[in-house]
Write a protein that binds this DNA or RNA. Structure first.
Lengths: 155, 155
DNA sequence: ACATAACTGAAATTGATTTTCAGAATCGAC
DNA sequence: GTCGATTCTGAAAATCAATTTCAGTTATGT
C-alpha cells in the first residue's frame, strides 16, 4: 500500500494543478476545505465536511464548501455519490472502480468489486442494443451488529 | 398476456380496497389521478402525471397528486423509482422484479432481469456478513439511435 | 340531515444545493 | 511593490422537488 502522506500530497498537488490549468485562484479557504476532505474518512457528506471545515476556520461558508467540492470532482480528486439518504457524499476518486453495500440499520458502507457482475451488465447492454457507459449499483442489507440488535427488539 | 383493460380495472379496484381498508375517503380527485396514472406510460414523473391530470380536471393541485401517488405506492399499485434526473418516477408495481437500462442520450428506459446478477449480489452480501435486503441497480448506455446521431455530430 | 373525520388547493415550508451580489483577495503586468 | 482586471467569498436569496399547514369543503356512518 502507498504511503498515505505521499498520496495526500499528490492529491493536493493535483488540485493545485487544476486551479493553475483553469486559471483559477488559490485561496486559503480552498486549501482548508481540500485538506479537510483529503484527511477525512470515506463517503463524507457536505454537512460533515462543513463541520470539520468550520472547526478549522469558522468564517468559511457553506457555499464555498459546495463550490470547492465541485472543483475537486472536476479534477478527479473526489467522486460524488448519491445513496438513499438524499444528500451527496464524496469519496476519493483515486481508488479503482467499486460499488457499495450499505447497512439499512446503521448506515455503514462497505465497498466491494465483482467483475462477474460488471461483465454480465455489459452483456445485457449489448444484447439490448446499447453501448454500455456505466452503472449505478448499491446493495442494501443488515450488518451483523444490526441483525443482533433487531433480535433483541423482536424477542 | 393479460387483458390490459381487466388489469387496469383490477388495479383501480385494489386502490379502492386500500381506501376502504384504511378508512380513507373516495374522492373525484383521487379517482382522476389514479385513472390517469393507470392509463399512463411507464416511468411517469409527477410533473408529467400532473400535466395529464390537469387536462382532465384543471382544479386539481400538485399536492394532491403527490399525496395520491403516495397512497398508490402504499397499496402496491405503483412503485417509486429514482433515476439520475432527480425527480421521482412511478411505474406499475404489478410486474415482477426488474432493473433498468437507461439511454444517456434520449432518456429511453428499457427493463431487464438477470437472475445471475441477483445471485451474485446475494453472495457478496453474505460474504461480507450482511443479510441481503435489496439493491438499486441502473445501467447506463447509448441506444442505437443516439449512437447514430453522435456519429453525425462527431464526424 | 348531521356530525366528524378526512380531504383539498393554495401557500408556506423544508432540505439540499445553487445563484446573486457587493465587498475582498489573487495574480500578472508594469 | 502597486495597480487593475478577474476571480472569490460569505450571506442571503433563490431554486427545485417534495411535504406540511391551514381554513374551508366533502365523504361517510348513523
Amino acid at each position: 500500500m502507498a504511503d498515505p502522506k505521499r498520496t495526500a500530497d499528490e492529491r493536493f498537488a493535483r488540485f493545485k494543478d487544476h486551479l493553475r490549468a483553469q486559471r483559477l485562484k488559490s485561496t486559503a479557504q480552498r486549501d482548508t476545505i481540500v485538506k479537510a476532505f483529503i484527511e477525512s474518512q470515506r463517503h463524507i457528506s457536505v454537512e460533515e465536511l462543513y463541520t470539520e471545515v468550520r472547526r478549522r476556520n469558522p468564517r468559511i461558508g457553506y457555499a464555498t464548501v459546495y463550490r470547492t467540492m465541485k472543483l475537486l470532482t472536476e479534477c478527479g480528486v473526489a467522486a460524488e455519490r448519491h445513496f438513499r439518504d438524499g444528500e451527496a457524499r464524496y469519496e476519493s476518486a483515486e481508488k479503482q472502480h467499486h460499488d457499495h453495500l450499505i447497512c439499512e440499520g446503521c448506515g455503514k458502507i462497505v465497498e466491494f468489486e465483482e467483475p462477474r457482475i460488471e461483465q454480465l451488465q455489459e452483456d445485457i447492454a449489448k444484447r439490448l442494443g446499447f453501448q454500455f457507459t456505466g452503472h449505478k449499483m448499491e446493495l442494501y442489507g443488515l450488518c451483523r451488529d444490526c441483525r443482533r440488535s433487531r433480535h433483541h427488539v423482536a424477542g
